[in-house]
Computed example of a mutant assay.
Amino acid sequence: GFLGLSGAILVQVQRTLHIDPGTFILMLAILPTAIALLLMYFVDVHSAHQRYNKKFLDAFSLMAVTVAGFLMVVIICDQVFMISSAGQSVCFAILLLLIMSPVAIVVRAQRSESKQREEPTSEEQTGLLLHEETAQQDSENASSSTPLVGSNNQDMSSDKAENLNVVQAMCKLDFWLLFLAMACGMGSGLATVNNISQIGGSLGYTSRETSTLVSLWSIWNFSGRFGAGYVSDHFLRSRGLGRPFFIAATLLVMGVGHAIISSGFHASLYVGSVLVGLCYGSQWALMPSITSEIFGL
């Protein structure tokens, strides 16, 4: 989710700090790699109780939605009312606090986890075992009874059990269908965001309007990433619609978005970027799940 919001956040950084383009591009080239190298030593395998994790994961999701909503309000207000430099500084400070808020969630989760490390009583152990067995049986029944649209259930179950490697997966027709779908969807979406400034300039948009479009596109990208997993899981369990169906739907809607952008009518870039951004983010959320279901982990 935060990856989808990164474009909007970086635009706010550039507008508030008034960084010149050369320095800003250099920062984009160095900073992500430097952060990954510095923080990679903190990544470790940590055994945790899954029953205590959900509320903290929900807290992360809530903070991501809060950041997206705050950015949306700031972008719209800046476009309509032209926020002053002092106002931009205040908004940027609030944005930094919101971005750093997951650290507090992590600290709270760590404290809660340390309190729950005590061994449960025999009654709690019995209840946990019964609950785990029931959940496992329910998941097995659901996976065996739920069909996936667009592929053969027997082949998919056998492929998932085999955990195919790359060479074995490339021998399957599903691999090339998924590859073609992702190349058309993600490739065209990435081409759109990379050239949105040039498209806006050719349609008569100002540089400020095109930067606003980039920020809004990042928010739609986040919305697609965040919502596609939930929506696909809901329909998979309630209606039996597999995730490949949603890939096809997002490709169709993305095609409509590209057609709207190419039409050139008034505000076409705004409407088209919404559709393309939502579908682009949705495909990034759906693709790993589909790959795992078809070819195994």
Score class of each variant (00 low, 15 high):
48 A>G: 02
134 T>K: 15
118 E>W: 05
268 S>K: 00
160 K>F: 04
89 S>N: 10
12 Q>A: 14
75 I>T: 11
276 V>R: 09
129 L>M: 12
116 Q>D: 12
251 L>W: 10
33 T>E: 05
18 H>N: 10
236 L>C: 11
271 V>C: 14
83 I>T: 12
128 L>M: 10
29 A>I: 08
229 G>T: 07
86 A>G: 11
100 M>C: 14
125 Q>W: 10
108 R>E: 04
135 A>M: 12
205 Y>C: 04
210 T>N: 08
207 S>C: 01
210 T>Y: 08
168 Q>V: 07
192 T>G: 02
126 T>R: 13
294 I>D: 00
183 A>M: 15
2 F>C: 06
156 M>D: 12
140 E>Y: 10
139 S>C: 01
170 M>G: 06
127 G>W: 02
246 F>K: 01
173 L>E: 05
92 F>Q: 04
223 S>M: 15
43 V>I: 12
130 L>A: 15
245 F>R: 09
60 F>G: 00
225 R>D: 11
134 T>M: 13
87 G>E: 03
37 L>M: 10
67 V>S: 05
214 V>A: 12
90 V>M: 12
94 I>T: 14
93 A>K: 04
118 E>D: 10
248 A>F: 15
167 V>F: 07
266 H>N: 13
23 T>G: 11
179 F>R: 02
230 Y>V: 11
218 S>R: 03
246 F>Q: 03
102 P>R: 03
7 G>C: 02
262 S>I: 09
205 Y>G: 06
229 G>D: 05
280 Y>E: 00
225 R>Y: 05
100 M>P: 01
163 N>E: 08
199 I>K: 03
286 L>M: 10
250 T>L: 05
133 E>A: 07
173 L>M: 08
292 S>A: 15
149 V>A: 08
118 E>S: 14
295 F>W: 11
201 G>M: 06
131 H>Y: 08
145 S>W: 02
85 S>L: 09
21 P>L: 02
47 S>T: 03
193 V>A: 02
21 P>H: 10
138 D>T: 12
216 L>F: 12
123 E>T: 13
256 V>E: 05
114 S>H: 08
192 T>E: 06
7 G>Y: 06
105 I>C: 07
89 S>E: 08
234 H>M: 07
26 L>N: 06
24 F>V: 04
171 C>Q: 13
291 T>A: 13
286 L>H: 04
228 A>S: 15
134 T>I: 07
200 G>V: 00
259 A>N: 05
38 L>N: 01
90 V>G: 00
140 E>V: 09
172 K>C: 10
58 D>T: 14
156 M>W: 00
268 S>I: 01
261 I>K: 10
244 P>A: 07
86 A>I: 03
101 S>Y: 15
87 G>D: 03
280 Y>P: 00
31 L>W: 09
100 M>Y: 09
238 S>T: 13
127 G>P: 00
265 F>E: 02
289 S>H: 08
32 P>W: 04
71 L>W: 06
154 Q>G: 03
93 A>D: 02
223 S>D: 03
113 E>V: 01
296 G>D: 03
35 I>G: 00
142 A>N: 13
238 S>G: 00
191 A>I: 13
99 I>C: 15
225 R>G: 15
224 G>N: 12
81 F>H: 05
42 F>Y: 10
194 N>P: 00
84 S>F: 08
234 H>Y: 14
247 I>S: 15
224 G>I: 06
155 D>M: 05
4 G>C: 04
227 G>Y: 05
